[in-house]
């Protein structure tokens, strides 16, 4: 079986890889590109642990084929910090205890960052609905929602 050659951009870098037609973008990220920050919790788009941006659009990488990334830009959790400078969401997730086991954290951070780019001043309800596709079983979501709202306020203040 001949594999597909894909040219794409991941976290700002030009990347090319070979994949099988049935490989998902998540398979490629984790197994080929060694970017294991995106997690597979369900492989059906129900948990959001594999959330990434493709051309700026929030998607589940388990529901995108690796071959579809041709010519696109992909952003993952590994690209969220700039060098050793954490994104304010990352900082606040640590400082405000918005994570416990941490398995859902990369997906939630990617999704929350995308929300704040679209809506710098979301209500609690808007944050809760935006993140409804990111399952967390440890926290009851409380500290996550607070961290996102606090970060939004902080970023608005800084802007």
């Amino acid at each position: 079986m001949s594999r597909i050659h894909v040219n794409t951009t991941v976290n700002g870098d030009a990347v090319d890889y070979l994949c099988e037609a049935e490989d998902t973008l998540l398979d490629v990220l984790r197994d080929t590109l060694d970017l294991t920050g995106s997690k597979e919790g369900c492989a059906s788009g129900d948990c959001g642990a594999c959330s990434v941006l493709v051309d700026g659009r929030l998607v589940c990488s388990c529901l995108v084929l690796g071959a579809e990334a041709e010519g696109r830009t992909v952003e993952t959790i590994e690209g969220m910090a700039e060098g050793d400078t954490l994104h304010p969401l990352q900082k606040n997730f640590i400082n405000k205890a918005a994570l416990q086991c941490g398995i859902c954290t990369p997906g939630i951070l990617v999704a929350a960052k995308n929300l704040l780019e679209k809506n710098p001043d979301p209500s609690e309800e808007e944050v809760r609905y935006w993140l409804a596709g990111n399952l967390c079983r440890c926290t009851g979501y409380d500290k996550i929602i607070r961290a996102v709202l606090d970060t939004a306020a902080e970023m608005r203040g800084a802007a």
């Binding site: 995106s38 597979e40 993952t76 997730f93 640590i94 994570l99 941490g102 398995i103 954290t105 990369p106």
Partner: peptide
């Protein structure tokens, strides 16, 4: 373990 977990570096069972 916070930094590892917010940057995707933390290694879980499948990683």
């Amino acid at each position: 373990d916070g930094l590892d977990k917010v940057t995707g570096r933390a290694r879980y069972g499948a990683d």
